[in-house]
Design a protein around this nucleic acid. Sequence first.
DNA 1: AACCACGTCAACCGCCTTGGC
DNA 2: CGCCAAGGCGGTTGACGTGGT
Length: 296
Amino acid sequence: MGRYPCCKVDEDLKKGPWTSEEDEKLMDYITKNGHTNWQLIPKKAGLNRCGKSCRLRWTNYLRPDIKRGGFSEEEEEIIINLHSLLGNKWSKIASHLPGRTDNEIKNLWNTHLKKKLLKSGIDPVTHQPITDPNLLFNLMNPFESALRLQAELTEIAKIHIIQNIIQVLNTPPPTLIPSLQENNYPMQQCYNNTIAPYDQILTNEPSPISNNLSDNMVVKSSILENNMINNVDNNSEYSSLPSLVPVTPENSVPFDQQIIDIINPSYYDDLEKILDDEANINPLSGKILFEDDFLS
DNA sequence: AACCACGTCAACCGCCTTGGC
DNA sequence: CGCCAAGGCGGTTGACGTGGT
């Protein structure tokens, strides 16, 4: 058999910050008896702590040779040089700096030195001048970089909104139907003119949002299309939602291709006009307003 | 004065190495 | 030689402090 386990999982040992009483107990015990067996120390010192926790507290805080206070410029230089040779070997780096712990050096590196090197155009991993133009751009122009990121996120958000609109168009509420019967509802114009290319989507092809549907179902849009545009007299169809059909490998379109279809400039531009113009959104209902709504 | 964002650092977690059996 | 616990190490987390709005 080997040794007995370090910290028993079922033992109700204290965790978190150390109190001054605990520090005092540990200090007293180690200065009198040394630290040959960390597993026995907490019991013998009267502490309800794991041996590992005691060792960490001692090596990182209580040890008498610990140097307090901030790091000097010289120490920082040494750490940078050693890191370029040793990498993230914090304990090895610490062994070259008397009074400094590996934890302390690691924290300094992650919070301060890494940024310092980046700012001066040095890759903190390789310690070589940064050559990646994107990374360099980000460092030199943080503001422009943020703007660029924001623009990219806006584009993604627009695609999400478009997907949501498609979802809404795929499931018309019953209240829309009388207007359609009168053949003057703006939604119909929407289909006929504004975003006519969406007819491509409103066919038997799976909706671009189908990938987001957790149950892997897709609205069978042909039923919807028939109800809304061609078959408006069939009232019995209006009250029920379009049936759902499972996505099958043969009728599914790769998501990348779906995205490309959506970004087809002709209807993307039209939708963008709607999305860009805040006046087209009813501030109370959040619904999209069409040209006819303004005329009436 | 209250809130928020960010930086710092002590402590924990989990993996790896070492060494006793 | 293999198993297994102790010790060591690096990554990560969360509490706390501080400065800005």
